[in-house]
Amino acid sequence: MWKQLAAFWRALRGSIRDLAPIILVIGFFQLVVLRQPVPDLTGLLTGTLLVVLGLTLFVRGLELGLFPIGETMAFSFARKGSLFWLLVFAFALGFGTTVAEPALIAVADEAASVAAEARVIDTSESAHNAYALGLRLTVALSVGVAIVLGVFRIIKGWPVHYLIMVGYLGVVVMTPLAPKEIIGIAYDSGGVTTSTITVPLVTALGVGLAMSIEGRNPMVDGFGLIAFASLTPIIFVLGYGMLF
């Protein structure tokens, strides 16, 4: 019992240290630069307490649940030896986790407003919603494709940087051809797709696969899935902007 409490206290202290910088920065700007009192101090303190507790639980849950299941599934797929099902799984994981991502929904909505403002689409509500949904599906599709490609790369042992360079080239070639309004959104969409729950899972999957395939190094071959997932949306969204 005491041992567990001590471990929990250590974890809690770790979370406090993780959050200290952001609290210091906001405190410094509020009190020293803007010279304003802190509104609602109790709300601030309880909120911070919740954030610390939440982060502690999240990291614990990561080690108990997300990491083990990601790795176990990678091992099981490697043992089963069916490339087809592994790639179906990779696609489902990428597409499924992205399509419902709140940050993406917000960005897609924003993008539809931009398109309407630029008179690319009708200003009607239905055109707005159709454009936003199309964009969301495009990004989800691109993440699905990215994870499939990334998993295939791990199996083949291709170096990650060649594929990334091809992707960069795609972005550079497509940027001047795409409508000006979509560029900022496209570049940003690469960053918003990978959520807090997807990242640990996908990382564990990649590392697990690289460990269970002979001749692969988990450090060199296991990482890189997230990199694909944040590059393909840029290309796909630029493409979407060119087509619609």
């Binding site: 919740l50 999240f58 614990r60």
Partner: peptide, 14 residues
């Protein structure tokens, strides 16, 4: 639970 507390706390405080 961790994510709920984390997000809610951020929304309340920071």
């Amino acid at each position: 639970i961790g994510m709920v507390l984390f997000l809610e706390g951020l929304e309340q405080a920071l």
